[in-house]
Amino acid sequence: MRSDWLPISAAMLVTGAMALALGRLVGDFGGTSAQTLRGVQADDGRWLAVAVVYFLAAACLTLGLPAVLELLRGGGRYVGGAGVVSLAIGFLGLAGFSMLIVSFRALIVSGSVDTGVLAAATEESGLAIFLRGWLVAILLGELLLAAGLLRAGPLLVPRWIPALLAVHLAAVAVGTALPPEVARLAVVLLAVALAGIGITAARPHRHPSGARS
């Protein structure tokens, strides 16, 4: 018999996936420091809302990871489990990123930074490592999770879920070659895949042996 927490964790995963997609789609102020500065100055409330959405996404996705473990069976348990750990690190980094957004917003609204200062701050080595680190953790977690879900077998996990994760990773890898609008929409693939994992985990399913759980 499955634990009572599983439907809650699965619901958190779905909610977090949708919040992640919303934050990415709404929170794009441009690719340069000047565009970001102008965007925040013109609509600082939107910047704050994006920070809140990202923090909500990070919290819900972290709480939804136990539901992912429900689908990792057999040979996919260890590979997928490593992916879950990597995703957890990435989601914690996303929460930190949301706090960083609030800090930058406060500096910009108060007039404490200009374009040059903002560009220098975002290129500072310590901050750059942090920003890239949690993104790498999420992408590595995706890769390992996709492998784990494939090894779990189609009886537990529909093939389209790891396929979407793989397509999202491919879109990220060639992101610079894609139009900005298409690259930004790639997050929808990740959100749909994570939502699919949550929905699948919440449903009664068969173990590889054939017994229902």
Rank of each mutant, 00 (worst) to 15 (best):
G81E: 02
L48G: 05
S209M: 09
L145V: 00
D43M: 12
L150T: 14
A59M: 15
R159H: 10
S112R: 11
F55T: 13
P204K: 07
V174H: 06
L107Y: 13
R159V: 13
R2E: 15
A211V: 15
S112H: 13
A10Q: 03
A106I: 03
T36S: 12
A186L: 04
P208A: 13
G198I: 00
L94H: 04
L155M: 14
F91P: 01
L185W: 12
P7N: 04
G27W: 02
R206K: 10
D43Q: 11
L185T: 09
V113G: 02
V157Q: 02
V50R: 04
R151V: 10
R105S: 10
V188S: 00
P7H: 02
G30T: 03
L164N: 05
F97G: 08
Y54A: 11
V187S: 03
V53D: 00
V40G: 02
R46L: 15
A201G: 09
R77K: 13
V50T: 07
T15A: 15
S98M: 06
A11E: 06
M1E: 09
I197T: 01
R212H: 12
L194N: 02
L140V: 15
L71T: 10
G90Y: 04
T15W: 01
A137F: 05
C60D: 07
A17D: 03
L127F: 15
R212G: 12
V182A: 12
S33H: 09
G76L: 01
A191H: 01
A146R: 05
S110E: 13
R203L: 14
F104C: 06
V68H: 02
L150H: 11
G126C: 06
I108V: 14
R203D: 08
G83W: 01
F55H: 07
E70H: 11
A58Q: 02
R184E: 02
L144Q: 07
E124G: 10
